[in-house]
């Protein structure tokens, strides 16, 4: 499943997509994110899945444009830490 967390507002599209088929629930992304945007837990959208899965925390879902802003400076942007540590490549950002 492609779980798209975030929103679209008048100013643009702000989504973090977790490919739950690729995500193995390892949890490396959780401490990698300096702002606690990601967490690992039960798959809320698949009641029959047993393994844990990564997701964007409820707290950050409606403000990820702002939560993720420090990792996305306008200039000299480094690779995003969350994506960097995800070996299955399950995390993608839309902006």
């Amino acid at each position: 499943m492609l779980a798209n967390y975030g929103y679209k507002n008048g100013s643009g599209d702000y989504f973090i997509t977790i490919d739950t088929d690729k995500c193995d629930g390892c949890g490396n992304c959780v401490p990698a994110c300096p702002f606690g945007v990601l967490e690992v837990g039960e798959d809320e959208n698949d009641p029959f899945r047993e393994e844990p899965v990564a997701k964007v925390s409820e707290f950050h879902r409606k403000k990820i444009k702002y939560s993720c802003a420090p990792c996305k400076p306008m200039k000299k942007r480094k690779p995003l830490p969350c994506m960097n540590v995800c070996s299955p490549g399950a995390i993608a950002h839309s902006w």
């Binding site: 702002y66 939560s67 802003a69 420090p70 996305k72 400076p73 306008m74």
Partner: peptide, 10 residues
């Protein structure tokens, strides 16, 4: 909070 993060962005 929103204006501050906009400012930090630059």
């Amino acid at each position: 909070d929103r204006i501050a993060s906009l400012s930090r962005k630059i």
